[in-house]
């Protein structure tokens, strides 16, 4: 796991362009909303002497009286739904490029977009499967909630019921994290094994389940890094009570987002490394020699690297070449 983490960090560093691309995409989408948000407020209130109150912090009276200007705010939040949908699709599009790029030694923008385009259909399908699996943690929480309600019938204190609820939410979160990891592995299965989305997801479950400790370990290690950086930035962050303060605050927020993106790419790199290490041999043998029927054009494997593979994980490329 440590080796995978190191590889992930190294990949994120050498392929910094991936982080830059993901951050840029994230920034552009969010900035679009932020600008619209700011403009709605400015159109309604720029001359109303409320900016000063908002600089001081959360202002409930401003918020409650915004009911009288709710039309523009409502329409703003309606556009947010489309924005999120657009971002998810774009992310699905880029995933193929990210994974394929992480398998290479060097980053190439044309290859990145070519790979992105190649896998987009199946990655969108995978995203849809993942969206369905989000129901699973909801079911877990619902089950715990039902048990909690049954407990509350005879309970004389809310403490055990609340603990039970928190445990239920925690287990729901762990379930969600498991499906999220399986989603990641399924992407590898598509990109490396050329599988159909459903088959990829099914085998990804098995692989994730078998290696749950190391996969979770990788994810938690990088989450911890983000947590530490976030805590430090939170301590250093200015209150943002002046224009300059707001600018400094925004810079720190973006630093945290950028670090999150970097560690996100590192997580993918580390998971990919671990995946290569643990992928069942039987699966390798079953790898189809022809592109799957679902795709309309043959799936091209990434260009062979100029240098020799530096670790066992790259044996995969060799084995794929052998199957051709």
């Amino acid at each position: 796991m440590i080796k995978a983490i190191q590889t992930g960090l190294k990949k994120a560093k050498t392929h910094w362009q991936i982080s830059a691309l993901v951050y840029a995409l994230n920034f552009v989408f969010a900035l679009g909303f932020a600008m619209a948000f700011k403009n709605v407020l400015a159109d309604e209130f720029a001359f109303r002497d409320v900016s000063r109150r908002l600089l001081e912090g959360f202002d409930f009276t401003f918020l409650s009286d915004m009911n009288y200007a709710s039309g523009s705010v409502t329409s703003l939040f309606k556009t947010l739904n489309w924005l999120v949908a657009g971002y998810i699709l774009t992310s699905a599009f880029l995933s193929g490029g990210i994974i394929a790029s992480l398998r290479r030694e060097e980053f190439s923008l044309p290859d990145f977009f070519a790979d992105s385009a190649r896998y987009v259909g199946r990655f969108v399908a995978l995203s849809a499967f993942f969206a369905l699996t989000v129901l699973a943690p909801i079911v877990v929480v619902a089950i715990f909630s039902a048990i909690g309600n049954a407990m509350s019938e005879s309970a004389i204190s809310e403490a055990p019921v609340m603990i039970w609820t928190v445990v239920g939410i925690g287990l729901g979160a762990i379930t969600l994290a498991f499906f999220y990891l399986a989603f990641e592995v399924a992407k590898f299965e598509v990109a490396c094994e050329n599988k159909k989305p459903f088959r990829a997801y099914m085998s990804a479950f098995k692989i994730t389940l078998k290696n749950i400790a190391s996969f979770f370990g990788i994810m938690l290690a990088f989450l911890l890094c983000v947590g530490v950086i976030g805590s430090v930035l939170h301590l250093l962050a200015p209150k943002g009570e002046t224009g300059a303060g707001v600018f400094a605050l925004a810079l720190m927020q973006q630093a945290l987002v950028a670090s999150r993106v970097f560690f996100r790419v590192a997580t993918m790199g580390a998971l990919l490394e671990k995946y290569r290490e643990v992928r069942p041999k039987q699966e390798l043998a079953e790898t189809p020699s022809e592109p799957v029927s679902e795709t309309t054009e043959p799936i091209q494997e990434p260009e062979p690297t100029k240098q020799a593979p530096e670790n066992a994980g790259d044996a995969e490329i060799k084995s794929e070449q052998e199957t051709k």
Partner: peptide, 24 residues
Amino acid sequence: ETAGFWKWAMNAMFWLQNFLLIFA
């Protein structure tokens, strides 16, 4: 005067960015 709106727009952007990263 818009500095306060920028502050809240930047806060909204920050939280949205973090949310969107789930799907990245």
